[in-house]
Structure formats: structure tokens, C-alpha cells
């Protein structure tokens, strides 16, 4: 645009974000009703929040409650907004920022398909054993492994499988829970 056509102002303030982002794991207790996932995901996209991982499943069948574990990357100010905006949704019971509230456990499950023969096959099995990955399917030329652990462990196992004939991976996303006797 020609310099003389540059606007001297704007109807809105165009300021850059200066805060550093952090990675937090949130646990969200919700009514298991139709559309609840769309409400949560829609809130994230509408307000421009980033989701790294999202896991949802019914956890208390008789109370029709589901638990959503969501990993977000945001500035501290936006993290507070994400929590309060989620709590504003009518079917949301509770939101806990596990990262902010103390010690917690994170686990992820992955199914990993590896194809190969000969020496590769033996090496694949040795590594799978070291990572305590279970063989859940096997053919003469392939394995499907089930591996559970922290996301970093799953990442390393997948990285090791890559040169050994990795075909495809499926991951559940993160499930997280606070340590100690207290419930949510």
C-alpha cells in the first residue's frame, strides 16, 4: 500500500502479546449430554485458544458425567480466561488446572503398527520389551504394539520405531489425575 494511504489509526488496538506461553493440563467435569464436546471445542476456537490434546469419555455412568482432559498452551492471563470461560458453560460442573494445582499424573496410550522382517523384527521386539509395550496383534511381517506412559515415553518409542518399519500410530491423547487422596 502507498505510504500516504496508510491509515493513521485503527478502530481497534493492534497490540502484540508480550507474556510467555505455558503448557497446562486442565480437567473438566461435564454433563454427558449431546453437544457438550462441541460446546467446549467451539469455545476454544471462538476465543482463539490452542488445544494440544483433548480426551473425553464418560466416567460416571449413573450420574451421566464425563471428564475432559485438555492440554492447552497459553499465557497465564489467557489460562485464567480459559478456566472461567469453561466454567461459564451451563453443563460444566468443575474445571481444575492440574498443572497449577500441584502434583498430578499424566498417561497416554498408543497403538503402533510396525512392518518388517529378519533382523529388524528381532530389534523391534527387544525395544518393545524395554518400553514395556505389549504385542496386541502379530502377523509374519508385522506387529501392533500397545504402549502406555507419559507422552514423552510414547514419543521416544515412536521415534525408535521409525527406522524399523513404522506404518502408523494412533494415540488416545492425555488422561490426567491429581495425586493424593483428594478427588476433583
Amino acid at each position: 500500500m502507498n505510504a500516504h494511504l496508510q491509515p493513521t489509526g485503527s478502530a481497534y488496538f493492534l497490540t502484540q502479546e508480550t507474556q510467555q506461553t505455558e503448557r497446562h493440563t486442565l480437567s473438566v467435569l461435564v454433563d454427558n449430554e449431546p453437544g457438550i464436546l462441541a460446546r467446549v471445542v467451539g469455545l476454544f476456537s471462538a476465543r482463539g485458544y490452542n488445544i494440544e490434546s483433548l480426551t473425553v469419555s464418560e466416567t460416571e455412568h449413573d450420574k451421566r458425567l464425563s471428564r475432559i482432559t485438555v492440554v492447552v498452551v497459553a499465557t497465564p492471563k489467557v489460562l485464567v480466561q480459559i478456566k472461567t470461560q469453561l466454567e461459564r458453560l451451563v453443563p460444566v460442573h468443575k474445571v481444575h488446572d492440574l498443572t497449577a494445582e500441584g502434583a498430578y499424573l499424566e498417561r497416554e496410550l498408543a497403538l503402533i503398527k510396525v512392518k518388517g522382517s529378519g533382523e529388524h523384527r528381532a530389534e523391534t521386539l527387544r525395544l518393545a520389551d524395554a518400553f514395556r509395550a505389549h504385542i496386541v496383534d502379530a502377523t509374519v511381517e508385522s506387529f501392533v504394539f500397545e504402549v502406555t506412559g507419559k507422552p514423552e515415553k510414547v514419543d521416544s518409542f515412536i521415534a525408535l520405531m521409525a527406522p524399523l518399519g513404522l506404518v502408523e500410530v494412533v494415540r488416545t491423547g492425555l488422561a490426567a489425575i491429581g495425586r493424593g487422596p483428594e478427588g476433583m
Binding site: 449431546p34 453437544g35 462441541a38 460446546r39 467451539g42 469455545l43 471462538a46 458453560l89 451451563v90
Partner: peptide
Amino acid sequence: GITRSCTKHNYL
């Protein structure tokens, strides 16, 4: 779906 983000709450 359309009114989810422009209502406080909605029901089908």
C-alpha cells in the same frame, strides 16, 4: 450448532 456461540445456552 449455529446458535451455540451466540446464546448463553441452547437446547435441542
